[in-house]
C-alpha cells in the first residue's frame, strides 16, 4: 500500500467522484433530515403553512415522539423485529449447518437455492406471499379441502412476522454458513470422542464458536426489520403499524415532515445502537471471525 502523497493525481482522481457522490446524494440529504427534525411548520398570516418551516425551533418533534401511542409503536417494532429475528435464527441455523455438512459438490447449489429468492423484488415477494396467506389463498384452500376452517394468516401479527421471516431469512443463513464452514471440525470430533453427547457438543463447542456468525446474522436481520413499512402495511393492515408506517404517513397523508424527520432519525439512532452492540460483542468474542 502506498502513501497518498506519493501519487497525488491518481489519489484525487480516484477519490473525487465517490466522495462527491456520497456527500451530494447521501450526507447532504441526511443533513436536511437532521435540520428539519428540529423545525416546525411556519405560521403565515395566522395559518399553519403547508410547506414553509421555522428552522431550529426546538425539540418539539422529539418530545412529541414520547407520546404513548408512538412509544407503544416503537416498542411493538422492537418486539416484532426481535421475534422475527429469533424465528430466522431458529430456522436458519439448521439450514446453514446442513449445507456445511452436505457433500462438497452440492454445497454451492444448496446455498444458491436458499439465497436466490432474496434477489427477487421485495414487493413482488410480498405480493406473492399475500396470494398464499389470504383468506381464500392457497394455504386456506388446502386446509379447507381437508375440512379445516380458514385460519387468519394475514392482517394480523402472524402475517407481519411471517412476512419478515420470509423476506429476510437469507440474511441470517449467509453469515451462519460462513462461520460454520470455517469451524474446525476436529473440535467436534474431540468433544464426541471424549464422551460428550451431541447436545453437549453443540452447547459447549459449536454454539460458542459460531457466536460471531450468529451476532452478524442477528444484526443483518434485525436492522431491516426495524425499518420495515411495506411488509407491515401489506400483510398487517392499519392495526399492525410499525414505526416505518408512522414515518411514511408523516411524509404522506399526515403531511408532518418535521415530525417524520425526527422519527426517522430516532430509527437511525436505534440502528446505530444495534451496530455499536455488535462491535462491542465482536471485540470480546473468541469464536471464528466472519
Amino acid at each position: 500500500m502506498e502513501d497518498w502523497k506519493t501519487n497525488r493525481n491518481v489519489f484525487w482522481t480516484l477519490a473525487t467522484p465517490g466522495t462527491l457522490w456520497l456527500i451530494a446524494f447521501f450526507l447532504v440529504p441526511l443533513a436536511f433530515l437532521f435540520v428539519l427534525s428540529f423545525s416546525s411548520k411556519a405560521m403565515i398570516d395566522g395559518q399553519i403553512s403547508i410547506n414553509q418551516y421555522d428552522y431550529f425551533s426546538g425539540l418539539t418533534n422529539y418530545l412529541r415522539s414520547f407520546n404513548p401511542d408512538i412509544v407503544s409503536i416503537f416498542i411493538r417494532t422492537l418486539w416484532w423485529s426481535a421475534l422475527a429475528t429469533l424465528a430466522c435464527l431458529i430456522i436458519a441455523y439448521p439450514i446453514a449447518f446442513g449445507i456445511c455438512f452436505a457433500p462438497d459438490r452440492w454445497r454451492p447449489l444448496l446455498l444458491m437455492l436458499i439465497v436466490l429468492p432474496f434477489w427477487i423484488n421485495l414487493l413482488i415477494r410480498t405480493y406473492a406471499l399475500m396470494a398464499v396467506l389470504r383468506d381464500n389463498g392457497l394455504v386456506n384452500s388446502a386446509l379447507g379441502a381437508v375440512g379445516l376452517g380458514p385460519l387468519p394468516l394475514m392482517n394480523n401479527t402472524f402475517g407481519v412476522i411471517f412476512g419478515l421471516v420470509y423476506v429476510y431469512m437469507p440474511f441470517m443463513v449467509l453469515p451462519l454458513y460462513a462461520t460454520i464452514e470455517r469451524l474446525d471440525k476436529s473440535f467436534l470430533e474431540a468433544s464426541l470422542d471424549l464422551g460428550g453427547t451431541q447436545f453437549q457438543t453443540f452447547r459447549n463447542i459449536t454454539l460458542p464458536l459460531t457466536m460471531p456468525g450468529i451476532v452478524t446474522g442477528v444484526v443483518l436481520v434485525f436492522i431491516p426489520c426495524l425499518g420495515t413499512f411495506l411488509t407491515s402495511e401489506l400483510l398487517g393492515g392499519t392495526s399492525s403499524w410499525m414505526i416505518g408506517n408512522v414515518i411514511q404517513s408523516q411524509f404522506g397523508p399526515a403531511n408532518d415532515w418535521p415530525f417524520g424527520s425526527a422519527l426517522s432519525l430516532l430509527l437511525m439512532y436505534a440502528t446505530f445502537a444495534v451496530l455499536a452492540v455488535r462491535a462491542f460483542l465482536s471485540r470480546n468474542s473468541k469464536g471464528v471471525d466472519v
Binding site: 431491516p224 413499512f229 416505518g244 414515518i247 426517522s264 440502528t271
Partner: peptide, 9 residues
C-alpha cells in the same frame, strides 16, 4: 442505514 430513512431524506 434503514432504507426508509434514505427514502425520506
Amino acid at each position: 442505514i434503514p432504507e426508509i430513512c434514505m427514502g425520506v431524506a
